[in-house]
Computed example of a mutant assay.
Amino acid sequence: MRSADLTARARIRDAAIDLFGREGVNRVSVRAIAAQAGVSPALVLHHFDSKEGLRKACDAHLVEVLRGDGGAADLGDTAKLAATLDAPELRRYLARAFLDGSPEASTLFDEMVEVSEGWLGRGTAEGWVHHTEDPHTRAALYVSWLLAPLLLHEHVSRALGVTDPAETDAALRISRTAVEILTKGVFADETVLSAMDNVRKGRP
């Protein structure tokens, strides 16, 4: 939707999402947000009371977008998650929110872990996911790996020689390799796993 079609409140929120994602909340002023939204600083404060109030509204909007119509269950659908984050400003903001540790981002991460644990658990019961002794840790790591290209956007782009790892061709390349790793593994035998078990057994 074009910015001209949005309400003033929505334009302010979208401008804040863009600027917060690019520069971080602490580096962005209410005046800068107002200028980008084409409104006065007073109107920003009228709608959101403070910059912190605006940040919370941005977090709430992002969570609403990611949850979609299906609620938390949509967070277990990685394809839907990627498609939802096709807007670069939303990806930047989500990455910043996770790194800054906002309460809303923490809640979102915990929901993603919970949904993924259930999804992987169903896969285990149906036989297309390996059994693990620690399903919760596996789910937490699974979500962390899913989000890694988002959080390490610049480094992943540089390493792979792409402009944007979320662009369709790059995303398919990354996703295919990630699924290959999860399906076939990296190590050809249990040498490294045995070494790790020995470290655990050797602890006092």
Score class of each variant (00 low, 15 high):
163 T>Q: 09
112 M>C: 06
164 D>F: 03
75 L>E: 01
21 G>V: 03
81 L>Q: 06
187 F>I: 12
42 A>S: 09
200 R>H: 08
1 M>L: 11
149 P>Y: 05
74 D>M: 12
45 L>V: 10
144 S>Q: 08
18 D>Q: 12
137 T>L: 13
166 A>G: 13
136 H>S: 05
175 S>P: 03
139 A>T: 07
171 A>S: 15
130 H>K: 15
139 A>I: 11
17 I>N: 04
193 L>K: 14
31 R>F: 11
159 A>K: 15
31 R>A: 12
7 T>I: 04
132 T>D: 02
28 V>G: 06
167 E>T: 10
204 P>L: 08
96 R>S: 10
171 A>F: 15
187 F>A: 14
163 T>E: 12
42 A>F: 09
143 V>L: 09
8 A>G: 09
177 T>W: 12
94 L>P: 03
152 L>K: 13
189 D>T: 09
57 A>S: 09
185 G>L: 13
204 P>C: 04
154 E>V: 05
92 R>I: 02
22 R>L: 10
156 V>A: 07
7 T>D: 13
64 E>H: 11
146 L>T: 14
99 L>V: 14
99 L>K: 08
60 A>R: 13
166 A>E: 08
86 D>F: 05
29 S>P: 07
138 R>F: 09
119 W>F: 07
178 A>Y: 06
193 L>C: 07
126 E>I: 04
127 G>T: 03
14 D>P: 00
200 R>I: 14
197 D>E: 14
108 L>M: 06
132 T>Q: 03
123 G>P: 02
160 L>M: 13
88 P>T: 05
137 T>S: 06
6 L>T: 04
68 G>T: 02
143 V>Q: 05
140 A>I: 13
193 L>Q: 12
69 D>F: 05
167 E>V: 12
112 M>Y: 01
159 A>Q: 09
122 R>S: 07
130 H>L: 12
108 L>V: 04
107 T>M: 05
172 L>N: 04
169 D>Q: 10
116 S>I: 07
79 A>T: 09
34 A>Y: 07
77 D>R: 00
17 I>S: 08
38 G>M: 03
183 T>A: 14
63 V>T: 10
178 A>N: 10
16 A>N: 01
78 T>V: 11
95 A>H: 01
76 G>D: 02
105 A>I: 04
181 I>W: 08
89 E>G: 00
